[in-house]
Design a protein around this nucleic acid. Sequence first.
DNA 1: CTATTCACG
DNA 2: ACGTACGTGAATAGA
Length: 885
Amino acid sequence: MDKWILIDGNSIANRAFYAMPPLTNSAGLHTNAVYGFTTMLLKLLEEEKPTHLLVAFDAGKVTFRHEGFSDYKGTRAKTPPELSEQFPIMKELLKAFGIAQFELAGYEADDIIGTMTRLADEKGVETLVVSGDKDMLQLASSKVSIAVTRKGVSEVERFTPETVNEKYGLKPHQIIDLKGLMGDTSDNIPGIPGVGEKTALKLLHEYGSVEGVLENTGELKGKMKERVEQHRDDALMSKKLATIFREVPLEGAEGGIAYGGFDAESVSAMFAKLEFRSLTERLNLSAPGAAQGAPKAELNVVPVDPGDTEAASLLAAAFKKPNALFLESVGDNPHHADIIGAALAAEDTVYVLPKALLEGAEGQFVRDWLSDPEASKIGCDLHRTELVLARLGVHLQGAEFDIQLAAYLLDPTESDQSVSGIAQRSGLPAVASDESVYGKGAKFKVPDNATLYAHLASKADAVRAIAPLQRAELEKSGMNRLYYELEQPLAVVLADMEKQGIKVDAETIQQLGKDLEHGIESSVSEIYRHAGTEFNINSPKQLGEILFDKLGLPVMKKTKTGYSTDADVLEKLEPYHDIIPLILHYRQLAKLQSTYVEGLLKEVRSETGKIHTYYRQTIAATGRLSSQYPNLQNIPIRLEEGRKIRKAFVPSEPGWYILAADYSQIELRVLAHISGDERLKEAFIHDMDIHTKTAMDVFGVSETQVDANMRRSAKAVNFGIVYGISDFGLSQNLNITRKEAAKFIEQYFDVFKGVRKYMDDIVMQARQDGYVKTLLERRRYLPEIKASNFNLRSFAERTAMNTPIQGTAADIIKLAMVRMQERLREEGLKSRMLLQVHDELVFEVPEDELEKMKTLVPEVMEGALALDVPLKADVNYGINWYEAK
DNA sequence: CTATTCACG
DNA sequence: ACGTACGTGAATAGA
């Protein structure tokens, strides 16, 4: 079955040019429109798999339309040279792709496309028209659909006659009447002044066409009648101008637009000239220039297959030289990931270690090397590597440098943490992306050995090359201690905790699940009764229809897809209908059931009854950890019903205890330190209740006069301060007006003057340096602090205020974790550190170590870093996590 | 694959 | 006038 795609070249190039940031190659040639155009083209080729493909361009300056109306397109700004220089390139690129391009003197691209769609209609060929211009909608038919670009070029909106009708209530051919009435300023089509889309649609729904409107001006009233009558000719001419000419002499042209794939060599040569590296990769083309441009010794790759004694002895010798290790495994969760293979890069040779070697008897010498603490390793994500190797019974030791961890410190907001991404940022020769080698999702597949080995080798070699560059960068940025004394040792501590895991009593969870099930069942039937119908309560869409359409409750907030039904909204709706509290209750129970009962049970290992989370050390932009598979940093505590889940977290040995210690107000203490605010420091030096103290100072009352509401407000203000306060945010949180919130903030800053100064200074500093940093010199770059867009800039400003606070708190507990693990070892304690929850550490402790740990843990936590105010950690213990409160 | 919602600090 | 609180991860719906 044939499929045609017809592209309006001028229109798409224009869209791409204005949508993309300026982009030039090293010769100074502008390439952004070509780039946008090409990405769109590739997407179409991949997704639509056309048999015929045509790009139409406007030709010359004078088209037949000018014969009737000399001002046509008169308002259109002259094409900027940055764009016009890109048209020849685009045409050259199309040639390389083997894609037909038409331009015909006297006709516009529209007309060529219009004529081709007429041919398509006559032949009954499935056709897609791609343009940035809604005029094209007039061509829609049962065979021809229209894709109109929306913001940028990658997103398109598709139209068929049905969707044109849905959107405008018009038949495709009426689009020209719409233009006739409303005009189009971009093409200088006048239409009828004062008639916009709304009015034009109303008129067309009534009278069907421009002519219909003109015949019935008698029925119109007032100003409108006057305008229409005065501009009859304009309307008729505008309609004519908007009409796409479909009789361009193109008979038989369809043979010339057949598309038979492209020649990889010509395309990759073009991409190289344009310096489209990511596109080169996307097409899996090797860059032809790479070989001569960046002379790089051909990698000497030696596979070490089991039984190959010669290769094995070379490898054993390589262990003694400086080298870099890369272990490939598949699966997001390192506790379950399967090894694919590994590679070790030493000097100019890369040894590939197939899975069979790593696992088999012949590989014992490799495993011995991996677990030798004296044999140093440079790697990429050694934390993950350690967990993956643990399942072979190998305890990875001797981490010397990790390029992923370093990349994270050098830019914690960079999302691409792969060897390929890091290599690219380091200015090294390109390393193929994993996606291009393995595919992704359902298409994931380990390639043949030759391809696989080459890929593993290039990664290990890149790791080797990247490490010294990063070491220099860390040094330059003052992050040596942060890296070598904190993050790298922490990676080992985290792996210890994760391998240890925490014991969970599955029966306790199951019992809770049964209780929840009863509660959910009765909630559901009550809700259906109130709603008068059954529906999916989990669907915000269906719930919104029930609440706001059926029951007519007031709409408080909208999301971009419809009504908002979040807890905030529902709480405001409580007085209106008895169904609301039921829904809130249902939501609470359903969350507990799905995420915490079912979710946690799925993660319990049947052999040990333990859960092993995975802490991600290179994700959070502030320096915090995050936890996955499962997330053990968001186990319920605020509401009693959920808090019961914590009863299931128990010690793994009989007679032991769970001990938990958490920092008290660590973020506000950090703020007191870095702002130097005397009043805030004073409060912590005397270990006062900080929210009460804030209320006293802000409201100017004595301690006994602070009521619960004042304290609540003060607490919200303190939170706001830490988050980078805005009156709007505070007003939302406290459910007060923005004015009132602004007044609170003003009063706060009048009292805590040092805090105000810090907030002002840090934003200025971020503007000056382009980044902010924590006490331990952890950085976060904030390029958007200079954005002209208010939203982006404000966000960056709040981040500038928050990151040093949240990040320093993260530094502190990480320090405490490294020290804690050292102390446990030094003192020969059997107690184990199991979990970290941002400001809390959880241990399992034998009874005879309880007294020791009750003093040791807070001592280490409080002593992690000396600030101008004391740090404080509270400690509790019990037979499970719930009781350790 | 994205949007919404909600659990935690 | 702009329209948001900072940082995460997981489950579910519905294209």
